[in-house]
Amino acid sequence: MSEVLQVGNKTIESGEIPVLLKQYGLWGQFLRGVVIDEAIAEISLSEEESRRAVEEWRLQNKLGSIEDRDAWLTNQGLTIEQMEEMILRPLRLEKFKQAKWHPKADLYFIERKQSFDQVVYSLLRTQDQGLAWELYYRIQQGEMSFAECARQYSKGPESQTGGLLGPVALSQPHPQIGKMLSVSQPGKLWRPQALAEWFIIIRLEKYLPAKLDDAMRRRLVEEMHETWLQEQVQLISKSQTVESPAPSKPL
Rank of each mutant, 00 (worst) to 15 (best):
residue 232 Q to A: 12
residue 11 T to C: 06
residue 3 E to G: 12
residue 232 Q to H: 08
residue 70 D to K: 15
residue 251 L to Q: 14
residue 152 Q to I: 13
residue 125 R to A: 06
residue 20 L to I: 13
residue 111 E to H: 04
residue 34 V to R: 12
residue 167 P to M: 06
residue 247 P to H: 07
residue 194 A to P: 07
residue 206 K to I: 04
residue 26 L to A: 15
residue 115 S to N: 13
residue 8 G to S: 03
residue 198 W to V: 00
residue 16 E to N: 04
residue 164 L to G: 00
residue 181 L to T: 06
residue 31 L to C: 10
residue 49 E to D: 10
residue 147 A to I: 04
residue 31 L to N: 00
residue 21 L to Q: 04
residue 100 K to F: 03
residue 14 S to Y: 10
residue 213 D to T: 01
residue 37 D to V: 01
residue 129 Q to W: 06
residue 183 V to Q: 15
residue 121 Y to S: 01
residue 250 P to T: 09
residue 232 Q to S: 07
residue 85 E to L: 05
residue 184 S to Y: 05
residue 142 G to H: 08
residue 141 Q to M: 07
residue 226 E to M: 14
residue 86 M to G: 11
residue 80 I to C: 00
residue 76 Q to L: 07
residue 76 Q to E: 14
residue 41 A to R: 15
residue 75 N to M: 11
residue 233 V to Y: 14
residue 67 E to N: 08
residue 6 Q to S: 15
residue 21 L to W: 03
residue 109 F to A: 02
residue 237 S to A: 15
residue 236 I to P: 06
residue 193 Q to R: 02
residue 52 R to L: 14
residue 217 R to Y: 07
residue 243 E to P: 02
residue 130 G to Y: 08
residue 226 E to S: 09
residue 167 P to Y: 12
residue 15 G to R: 09
residue 79 T to C: 12
residue 218 R to D: 14
residue 98 Q to N: 13
residue 157 P to V: 09
residue 119 V to K: 05
residue 122 S to P: 00
residue 23 Q to I: 11
residue 172 Q to P: 06
residue 71 A to K: 14
residue 154 S to E: 04
residue 47 E to H: 14
residue 64 G to R: 06
residue 81 E to Y: 02
residue 18 P to T: 04
residue 71 A to L: 10
residue 244 S to W: 13
residue 162 G to T: 03
residue 162 G to Y: 04
residue 166 G to Q: 01
residue 70 D to M: 11
residue 217 R to I: 12
residue 15 G to M: 04
residue 249 K to V: 08
residue 173 P to H: 03
residue 166 G to I: 06
residue 36 I to G: 06
residue 102 H to D: 13
residue 24 Y to D: 11
residue 233 V to L: 08
residue 48 E to V: 12
residue 108 Y to I: 00
residue 143 E to P: 00
residue 82 Q to K: 11
